[in-house]
Simulated scan of single mutants.
Amino acid sequence: MQNFVFQNETKIIFGRDEEQVVGQEAKKYGKKLLLHYGGGSIKKNGLYQRVVESLQAQGIEIFELSGVKPNPRVSLVREGVTLCKENNIGFILAVGGGSVIDSAKAIAAGVNYEGDVWDFFDGKNSVNDCLPLGVILTIPAAGSESSGGSVITNEDGSYKRAVGHETMRPRFAILNPVLSYTLPSYQTACGITDMMSHILERYFTREKNVELTDRLCEATLKTIINNAHTVLDDPTNYDARAEIMWAGTIAHNDSLNTGRIGDWGSHDIEHEISGIYDIAHGAGLAIIFPAWMKYVYKHDVNRFVQFANRVWDVEIDLNDLEKTALQGIQKTEQFFRLIGMPVKLNEVDIGEEHFEEMARKGTERGPIGNFIKLAEKDVFEIYQLAK
């Protein structure tokens, strides 16, 4: 087990109707607030009105910036940075899913910086000081509500890049499972895939003697798997929605990667796909993760055997461990398909024309991943396996 420091200061406020306390929480950080959200869904379901009333009751002046899209764009982030600077705004409230939260984090990072916010994402500078922000989560998926990371897309060149810093963690996150009742089934399935992928990135480590976090990863994966069909078949099942929502937070709040080194190659590989083709991140991960598994499993067959046995209940064949490992990969792919996810690039009309470009861009800063290091040619081969 590796040495580690674990500190997560995000206050989680979980349960029915808890969005009504947002004004009380936000007032701790000043009297001017940027309300950041996506489209009109929060107005249609009444959440916007409840949030505004709670904020106004505490005397908070509200500035708004809507229009966040999936795979959030740096152009809107720049608008938010300017808006905050010009109006001396001291707090950001993100109401939405991972895209809104990541966009809010990027704005928070850019406000106290004199250069262009994209500098952080292309490695020209490092984040060290962010505006405080809070979250009302509406889409369980990305885990951004208590993580220290943000992923943003630059329309110029179709680059999708990530950056992280402890000051980017939200000060509070309000999680009401009821707010996820109206999500389309496809979006729910994308979220399930996203949170499972966050766990898998951590689970596939070369670090030995990490039994506790292995077991925590496995338990969280099985909880998601056990509740996935319930939320898809019965969208207003509160108990199942609550399990999924909390699992999504646990998957990415860093508790599952204490003492271990995760991989993260699959995320980097997928970012190139959604950066160019603008597909849902979860859908891209459902395609890439099984392909990555097929490409790397022989480097540590025992870990893949453990995964197959403990997560998917595959009986271990002591005479053919490779067979057991492959069954676990097959079960993963089958599960993604059963919940309505694509598992091949051709299922989302993506051909080979950008494989070389994506492999080159994905590794332009050097090899990616930690389970094994992936060079440009390796990434290209994984795209081939996924086509």
Rank of each mutant, 00 (worst) to 15 (best):
F91Y: 15
S103M: 13
G46W: 10
I62F: 01
G115S: 13
V68H: 13
Q56T: 08
Q20N: 14
N71A: 13
S144E: 08
A94H: 04
P70I: 12
I42P: 02
A94N: 09
L35G: 05
G39F: 04
V51I: 12
V100K: 09
L76F: 08
I101A: 06
A109D: 01
L33S: 05
F63I: 06
F91P: 08
Q56F: 00
F121C: 00
G23L: 03
D17P: 00
K32T: 12
A57S: 13
L34N: 11
K28P: 05
G98H: 12
L133S: 14
I89D: 05
T138Q: 05
I60T: 10
L76V: 10
G67V: 09
G30P: 10
G59F: 08
D119K: 01
V77R: 07
V95A: 02
E145A: 14
V68K: 12
V117G: 01
K69A: 14
G59K: 03
A108Y: 07
I101L: 09
A109H: 03
V100H: 09
V21I: 14
G97W: 08
T138F: 06
E64F: 04
V127A: 05
G40Y: 00
V22Y: 01
N45V: 12
I101D: 08
E86L: 10
I42F: 04
A26Y: 02
E114P: 00
R78M: 04
Y113E: 02
S75I: 04
F120G: 07
N125C: 13
E19W: 08
G123R: 13
E114Q: 05
R78I: 09
E86Y: 01
K124F: 00
S103R: 13
S126Y: 09
N128A: 06
C84M: 04
P72M: 15
L35H: 06
I89V: 14
Q56D: 00
E64M: 06
V77A: 14
K32V: 07
E145S: 13
G96E: 05
A104D: 05
A108K: 08
L83R: 03
K31I: 00
I89Q: 06
D17G: 06
S54A: 13
D116Q: 01
L35D: 06
K32L: 08
Q58F: 03
Q24M: 03
C84T: 02
E145W: 12
A106Q: 11
S66Y: 13
L55R: 10
L65D: 08
F91W: 08
G40Q: 04
V77L: 10
L133C: 13
L47M: 09
R78W: 01
